[in-house]
Amino acid sequence: MYSRGARAVALLALVATVSACGLPRSGPNKREIFSGAIQKQGDSFVVAVNDHVTRATAVVPAIGFPPEFRGAGLVTADIIQPGDVLGLTVYENVDDGILARQGASAALLNEVQVDDAGFIFIPYAGRIRAAGNTPERLRQIVTEKLDAQTPDPQVVVRRLAGDGATVSVVGGVAGQGVYPIQRPNRTLSGMLATAGGLSIPPEVARISVLRGSQRGDVWFQDLYSHPQIDIALRNGDRILVERDTRAFTALGAMGAQRRVPFETQNLSAIEAIAQVGGLNTGLADPKGVFVMRNESQEVAQMVLGRADLIGEQRMVYVLDLTQPNGMFLARDFAIRDGDTVYVTEAPFVQWQKTLNAITGTAGTANNLTNLADGN
């Protein structure tokens, strides 16, 4: 039979054992994160967010079109391309023309094909570049070439076969396909409308235009906010519409713990927290909101006011939502692709877990003792 003193000793042993054990939790606490700072021989810079930090870190990767795209003028649908087949009629103002048959006033040149280099051959006019010109411009060129051979020639040029200038549109649009460049869709926004508009949310739609070896990217909404980037299209352009692939990871005492895609073009810390259901009011420490990222050398030096850093730096940004301007700083602090947003548990939560573990373990021990006393 156990004495009361023995049971008290056993209870104290249980308390010590539970206190020494690692209790379940979602991640490190504030003290452990701060202990990993470079200032304490750790491997990351731990920085409290203030107005200077929000400005220094408000760096959004630049996207846009190269100058060659923005400076291109509008084209028509009737641009002649290599492989097109043309028909030309040449009217001459003389009875004995150089091209017309005896007794005829016009010469009909059917099925003149544009070669792979973009040229055609016209008797007495020579080899003429047709690709890149409209039929009207080619008519003027042929007329000028023949004018030295026959007086006041009249030339008609028409396309017999060929697609003309076209653009392919794929990805998140209602109607993927190859579309001719026509008057209503000679710009990027017009072509997207021709393809039926977007099939993905416009807030996260990213538009890429591939032209030869060059590529440019813009956000869909910027096409309407900044009309100057609504570029003119060129034959062979490939337009890709895709959903934004950026995401951050939410961990700790929040409504969810998962990888979270961006829902808007720009995302602040307060929006990121709200996107996963906000802080868990029963667990979260509003003084312990951390944003972890690998920061570029340039930004890290701006944040820390140093010039001796080399390469990317591990940064841990600390937000205290209980400060008078804490919510404003969280609203202004930009979240970037690949960030980890982590919220620590409030200190009392660990105490509560400890007490629950102690009382639960002590209750189990007491039951065992009573069972032993009854034997």
Rank of each mutant, 00 (worst) to 15 (best):
A77C: 08
P261W: 15
I181D: 03
K145Y: 13
S26Q: 15
V156E: 10
V114W: 15
A13R: 09
S168G: 11
V46L: 09
M191N: 04
E32Y: 15
N375M: 15
A232H: 10
R7H: 04
L283A: 09
E203F: 03
R243D: 00
R314C: 01
D51V: 07
L279Q: 02
P135K: 10
M327L: 14
I335Q: 07
T344P: 03
P201D: 10
Q214I: 06
A165E: 09
M1E: 09
D147I: 05
N375C: 11
P24M: 12
G252Y: 15
G71P: 00
N133C: 01
R314D: 01
S213I: 03
N266P: 03
A193F: 14
A20C: 09
A58M: 11
A48W: 15
I270T: 07
F290H: 02
V47R: 06
I80C: 07
R101A: 09
V318A: 08
G360I: 06
V173W: 13
Q140M: 04
N110W: 14
G338E: 13
T166Q: 13
T17E: 06
R206F: 00
P61A: 11
S199T: 11
S19N: 08
M191L: 02
L251G: 07
Q41R: 15
G22C: 13
E203R: 00
A165W: 14
V60R: 01
A148H: 14
R183Q: 12
L138R: 05
Q39R: 12
G64P: 01
P202F: 08
G216I: 06
D320G: 00
R238Q: 07
Q140V: 04
V204R: 02
F69T: 10
L319C: 02
S44E: 11
R246P: 01
S213A: 11
T249A: 07
R246H: 00
G103F: 15
N185Y: 14
L188T: 06
I200R: 02
I63A: 00
A357G: 07
V85R: 12
S296H: 08
M315L: 13
L74F: 12
T249G: 04
R211P: 02
R55P: 00
K145V: 03
V114I: 08
I128H: 12
V53I: 05
Y179T: 06
R259H: 00
L12H: 09
G171C: 10
R159Y: 12
G277L: 02
F248K: 01
A125E: 11
D147V: 06
R259E: 10
V170Q: 13
S268H: 05
N325A: 14
N370D: 13
